[in-house]
Simulated assay, not measured.
Amino acid sequence: MQEPDLITEGLNLLILGMGFVFVFLTLLVVATTLMSKSINHFFPEAEEPAPAKAGKAAALPTEQNSEVIAAISAAIHLHRHRNKN
């Protein structure tokens, strides 16, 4: 085989291979999109009711909020004392 024939054969394989990959990935995107739309159509997500009070403090009960603050404060205190040494 001559070198121009090898280069032509290589380019043909390159175009054919990249074409197949492009077509496969395009079909994969289309199939995934269609499946997602069909799932959302048949099983819609339930809407969550909006909380009565807005803000981060209203999200947690007072007892739980104070426990979270205490845990965060203890973690910061421990981190600062470990890094001093």
Rank of each mutant, 00 (worst) to 15 (best):
A57C: 00
A70P: 01
V68Q: 10
L11T: 02
A57V: 14
K84Q: 09
L16M: 06
R82K: 10
P44V: 13
F24N: 03
H79K: 14
T8A: 15
A57Q: 13
V23G: 03
E47Y: 03
R80Y: 06
E48Y: 13
S38M: 13
S66T: 08
P49D: 02
I15A: 07
A31G: 07
E45H: 05
A57S: 12
R80I: 09
L34D: 03
G10D: 07
A71G: 02
L25C: 06
P4Q: 07
G10W: 06
A74W: 02
Q2G: 09
L60Q: 02
E63D: 13
P61T: 13
I69R: 06
P44M: 07
P49M: 05
A59Y: 08
L14A: 11
F24T: 01
L14G: 00
L28S: 11
L25R: 03
F24Q: 00
A58I: 01
E48G: 02
F24V: 06
P51W: 04
N65K: 08
H81L: 14
I69N: 10
T32W: 13
M35F: 09
N85S: 08
L14T: 04
L6Y: 07
T33N: 05
L34S: 12
G17E: 08
R80E: 07
G19S: 05
A31T: 09
K37H: 00
I76N: 05
H79Q: 10
N65Y: 12
I7Y: 01
P51S: 02
K56W: 15
S73L: 10
L28Q: 09
T8L: 11
I72C: 06
M1D: 10
M18I: 00
E3K: 12
S73R: 15
I76S: 09
H41P: 00
F20G: 11
I69D: 10
I15M: 04
F43I: 14
N12T: 07
L6T: 03
S66F: 09
K56V: 13
N83I: 04
K84I: 04
I76E: 06
N65H: 14
I7R: 01
P61A: 14
K37V: 10
G55H: 03
S38E: 11
E9H: 07
L25M: 10
E63L: 05
S73H: 08
V23F: 09
T62F: 09
P49K: 01
A71W: 02
T32M: 14
L16S: 11
T8N: 14
K84C: 00
A70Q: 11
N40M: 07
H41G: 05
N85M: 09
P61W: 10
G17L: 03
M1L: 14
I72K: 12
L25A: 01
A75F: 04
A52Q: 15
I76Y: 03
K56F: 15
E63F: 04
I69A: 07
P51E: 02
E45W: 03
V68T: 11
F20H: 05
M1N: 03
A58G: 00
I15Q: 06
P44I: 06
A52S: 08
H41K: 15
L28Y: 14
D5L: 12
L16F: 13
E3S: 04
A57W: 02
L78Q: 13
A46M: 12
P51C: 05
P61C: 04
S73V: 06
H81R: 15
T62A: 15
F22C: 05
K84F: 05
L11V: 06
H77I: 11
F43V: 10
L27V: 03
T62Y: 02
T32K: 11
E48Q: 14
L14W: 02
N85G: 13
